[in-house]
Computed example of a mutant assay.
Amino acid sequence: MSARLVEIIVPDAGVAQAKAVIAKHCSRFWQEPVPDGLEKYSCVVPSRSIETLIAELDENFRGTEGFSVLVLQVEAVLPEIPELQDIAPPVAGAGKPPTKLEAFFTRDRISTNELYDDIEASLELRPNYLLTVILSALIAALGMRSGQTAVVIGAMIIAPLLGPTMAMAMAATLGDRALGRRALVTLVTGIAAALLFTFLLGMFIDVDPLVPELRNRTIVQPADIALALACGAAGVLAFSQGASLSLVGVMIAVALVPPIAAAGLFFGSGEESLGLSALFLLATNLVCINVAGIATFLVQGLPPRSWRLTSGIFVIWLLVLVLFVGLVGGRIALGAG
C-alpha cells in the first residue's frame, strides 16, 4: 500500500469548499474543530492522488489565513480503503479516473511537494557540502591511484553530488527555472571544488596513468554510456519513491565522482590530455543522467508546467547525447582503423 495521511487546516468559512475538494480524492476523512476559528480534516489519500489534491487545495485556499497542509507517511490502514488498491475505482465527483497505465506508473511515486522537500537541503551551498564533495573526491582519487576498488566505492557512498544532479533533471522536467539555476550553481561549484583539490593532490603524489582504475576513466565506451543512462534512470526511480538517499547516491556517484577525481589527478600530474579525456567522460555521464532522468520522471507522472519548455530542454540534451555518441563511435572507428 502507498498512501499518505494528509492533515488540512482551513478557516470555518472554507469548510464546505474544503470538504468538496477532499471528497474528490479520498473516501475516508475526519473533521474536527481546532482553536482560532479553524477546522482540521484528516484524510487517508493514495500517493498517486496527493499531487492533484494539494494543487486543488492550493488553488482554492492560497493566501487564506490559517490554511495549511501536512503530509505524513502511512504504514497500514484497517479496514482497507478501496482507492488504495493498485488501480483506483472512480470516486464520485473525481472526474475522469486514471487509466491502468497511468495508475501503474504513478502509484508508487511520492508527490512533487515531497520531492522538493527531499531535495531542498542538498542545494544549499554550505561549508559542509563543499567539504563533503572534496573529501569524496580525494578518497576516490587515492582509491583509484592505488587500484583499490573498495575505497572508490566508499567515496561514492558519501554521494555529495546527488542533490544537484537529481534537481537538474527534476527542474528540466517541471520547467522550474529557479530550481534549475540553483542546481546548476551547486553542481558546478561542487565539481570545481573537487577538481581543484584533486589537482593539488596530483601535484604532490606520483600518478601512474596505467593503473586500470585511472585509465578506465580516460576512455569512453558504449558500455559507459549505457551505464550512465541506467544510473540516471535507476536513481530517479529510487528517488521518486522516497528510497534511501545513500542508495540513490551510489547510483549517481558511480558516474560522476571517479571521472572528476581522475581528471584532477591527471591535470595535477601534468597529463593534460588524459585530464581532458576524463572530463569528457564526466560530461558524457552528466548528459546521459539528465536524458534518462527526465524520461524517467515523465514516465513516473511528474507533471511539467509547460510541455513546450520541457520537451525543448529534453531535445537539447538528446541532441548533445547523439553528438557525444557520434564522437565516441568515430573515436572507436578511427582506433580500430
Rank of each mutant, 00 (worst) to 15 (best):
S2F: 15
R4Q: 10
V6R: 09
E7N: 06
E7W: 01
G14M: 12
K19M: 06
A20R: 13
H25V: 05
R28C: 03
D36S: 15
D36T: 07
C43H: 07
C43S: 15
S47V: 06
N60I: 00
N60R: 15
F61M: 07
R62F: 14
T64R: 15
T64A: 14
L70W: 03
L70E: 11
V77R: 13
V77P: 08
D86N: 14
I87V: 14
I87S: 05
V91Y: 01
G93I: 12
G95S: 06
T99H: 09
A103P: 08
D108L: 15
N113L: 14
N113F: 09
L115T: 05
D117N: 04
D118F: 02
I119H: 00
A121Q: 10
E124S: 08
Y129Q: 00
T132D: 05
L135E: 00
S136Y: 01
I139W: 06
A140D: 03
A141F: 05
A141I: 13
L142K: 13
M144P: 09
A155T: 08
M156V: 09
I158N: 02
M166N: 00
T173A: 12
T173I: 08
G175C: 10
R177Y: 11
G180C: 00
G180K: 02
V185W: 07
T186W: 01
L187R: 05
A194W: 00
L195E: 09
F197N: 10
F197L: 15
L201F: 02
L201R: 00
F204G: 13
I205N: 07
D206N: 13
V211D: 05
N216L: 14
N216Y: 14
I219F: 12
A223Q: 15
I225R: 00
A230W: 11
A233N: 09
A234G: 14
G235F: 03
Q241S: 11
S244G: 04
S246K: 06
V248E: 08
A255Y: 09
L276E: 09
L279I: 10
F280M: 06
N285K: 08
L286F: 14
V287P: 12
I289W: 10
I289C: 12
N290K: 05
N290Q: 15
V291Y: 10
V291L: 10
A295C: 08
P303D: 03
W307P: 01
W307L: 13
T310I: 08
S311C: 02
I313S: 11
W317I: 02
L319N: 02
L319I: 14
L321R: 11
F324S: 10
G326T: 04
R331Y: 11
